[in-house]
């Protein structure tokens, strides 16, 4: 970001704290997506519990950041790009919190169901999908803190690949259900995980759209196209 500093140094300091805490919450959320998915793939209940507990930290960060945003609005009454940044972060933390909930859903699924049978290709696919989603979410957070429209566009483009993974899992599951209905619980569990990851990807997309709003001052909806790339 190449903007000049504010006359009021405390304003710059408050915005910097907001960015740092947002980045920290983003990292926590992205890591929890990977943790929850790895717990699912390994059917590791201890790891799943760890992911569920981490979600409490994410919720706490969400409350703190919202409070920080209100504090900045109250104390500094920002306008223009500053206002858009605070509003963008305030919206983005909601998306991170929801992304955290989806990771928790994956972790809960591990605890609520017995060990599931997964074909090696399914395991690889979900592992790759979780890694892609976590990277995308992390990139959306960096895009926000660095005001990087380029990174935001990469996030929007990545959503198509996330959707493709979900579709592949879905198609494979349909085939497996037709072949082996006795393992329907395992097959449906796989879809639940893929859909949860896909929803996390959607939240990364939402954050990327907020970045475009912060940078350009254009409402997020105005940047949406059929391909999802603004």
């Amino acid at each position: 970001m190449s903007q000049h500093p504010h006359f009021l140094k405390s304003f710059d300091a408050a915005l910097q704290v907001l960015r740092q805490n947002f980045q920290q919450m983003g990292n926590m959320t992205a890591e929890n997506c990977v943790l929850a998915t790895s717990a699912y793939l390994a059917h590791d209940e201890a790891r799943a519990l760890e992911a569920i507990n981490h979600d409490l930290d994410i919720d706490e960060a969400f409350e703190q950041l919202r409070s920080d945003c209100f504090d900045v609005l109250l104390r500094f009454q920002p306008v223009a790009k500053d206002l858009r940044l605070v509003m963008g972060i305030e919206h983005a933390v909601g998306n991170l919190e929801r992304a955290g909930d989806h990771a928790k859903t994956i972790a809960r699924h591990v605890i609520a169901t017995p060990r599931q049978m997964l074909a090696p290709e399914d395991r690889i696919r979900l592992d790759e999908m979780a890694a892609l989603v976590a990277r995308t979410l992390g990139k959306s957070v960096i895009a926000m803190t660095d005001h990087s429209t380029e990174a935001a566009k990469q996030v929007l483009a990545a959503d198509l690949r996330v959707d493709a993974y979900r579709d592949t899992v879905f198609d494979a599951t349909i085939v497996d259900l037709q072949r082996n209905a006795a393992q329907a619980r395992d097959h449906i569990g796989r879809i639940l995980v893929a859909v949860a990851l896909e929803r996390i990807g959607d939240h990364a997309t939402n954050i990327a759209e907020e970045v475009l709003f912060v940078s350009r001052g254009v409402a997020p909806g105005a940047t949406r196209t059929g391909s999802g790339i603004g």
Partner: peptide, 19 residues
């Protein structure tokens, strides 16, 4: 003007920045 000023000087002034 207050949410998305077009001119950098306007932006600097209303956001209280140097430059």
């Amino acid at each position: 003007i207050f949410t998305n000023p077009k001119h950098p000087r306007t932006e600097s002034y209303i956001t209280g920045r140097y430059g």
